[in-house]
Design a protein around this nucleic acid. Structure first.
Length: 308
DNA sequence: CTCGATCCCTGGACGC
DNA sequence: TGCGTCCAGGGATCGA
């Protein structure tokens, strides 16, 4: 599941592998995760890749400025979703199953986008549109100063876990690194961000940066299927202290790690080290009778989307 | 404004 | 072995 460290790893690998190459042609498979497939097919051929960088959880493949103003400052924006992979491969290598975008490069290799679940997103954007897209996001956690981080957390009234995951507040953090950071900072995921003291917020900030940096050094976490640009899995999953460790013992105090749902996401934490909030012993209410009704609605929606 | 719930998708785990 | 069911999760969207 590509979050900041995984995307950073892919960006570095791609920068080494394809910077300077020119795109010769584009072949698309399924396109339901592409913003404007026709535009992409029209604009990419001939473009030279000058830089591959990370922006939050996005990869930005930046192109050489074209002759027209419209083509200045253009990029391919790629979000890997849950299972996306960008692999530079030779044409003799069999494309993996679920390869949906193939970009032929001028050295004969292909840059292939593979995404079984198609939770990702691909968009060709230029000029103002690119600019507007990027400014929707909050601060980069590795670049933000403590003051900016705290201002971001205090900007909204919700739980710390939800704040860390909110890309418009902080860009790049997902479920794994949110849990890992909160465990290290000894802060319960359901605490309200507003109720965290200066000291606690400082701890979260430091833990977040430390965890992200270490994870980048280990080339990210491969839980099920993350692969970097060289097709290699990361190793940071071997260093997880909270995420995915339900029922196992806390490395700090020996208490059993628990999983609760916060902000709609599995949240692994140590119930002893990470004291639960006093503020809101709020219980989620999910009437069981709704189940059948929602399933009825689900099938109706699927039918509708297939038509339109 | 802010919240939770729901949905998208596929493969892997699990139960029988 | 094979089938059905559940779950993972980021982000868009919607109704409360």
């Amino acid at each position: 599941m590509p979050e900041l460290p995984e995307v950073e790893t892919v960006a570095r690998g791609l920068q080494r592998a394809i910077a300077g190459r020119r795109i010769v042609s584009v072949t698309l498979g399924k396109t339901d995760f592409i913003d404007d497939p026709a535009l992409m097919e029209r604009k990419l051929p001939g473009k030279r890749i000058v830089l591959v960088e990370r922006y939050g959880k996005f990869l930005l493949i930046r192109f050489e400025a074209g002759s027209t103003a419209e083509d200045a400052d253009s990029a391919l924006l790629v979000h890997l979703g849950m299972t996306g992979m960008l692999l530079p491969q030779t044409t003799v290598e069999m494309p993996r199953k679920h390869t949906h975008v193939v970009m032929l490069l001028d050295d004969g290799r292909e840059l292939r986008y593979v995404d079984p679940r198609r939770f990702g997103r691909v968009a060709y954007l230029a000029g103002e549109k690119l600019h507007n897209e990027l400014k929707r996001f909050g601060v980069d956690p590795l670049e933000a100063r403590l003051k900016e981080f705290i201002a971001g957390i205090r900007s909204r009234k919700t739980r710390i876990k939800a704040l860390l995951l909110d890309q418009s507040v902080i860009r790049g953090v997902g479920n794994i690194y949110a849990d890992e950071s909160l465990w290290r900072a000894k802060v319960h995921p359901a605490r309200l961000g507003r109720n965290l003291g200066e000291r606690e917020l400082t701890e979260v900030y430091r833990a977040l940066q430390s965890v992200l940096r270490k994870a980048i050094l280990h080339r990210g976490s491969s839980i099920s299927d993350f692969l970097d640009a060289e097709g290699m899995p990361g190793e940071y999953q071997l260093h997880h202290r909270a995420y995915g460790r339900e029922g196992k013992r806390c490395f700090r105090c020996g208490m059993v790690i628990r999983r609760v749902i916060v902000a709609g996401r599995s949240s692994y934490h140590c119930p002893k080290c990470q004291a639960p909030p006093r503020e809101a012993a709020r219980k989620r209410k999910t009437p069981k009778g709704r189940l059948s009704a929602s399933k009825v609605r689900k099938s109706a929606k699927i039918r509708k989307s297939r038509q339109g």
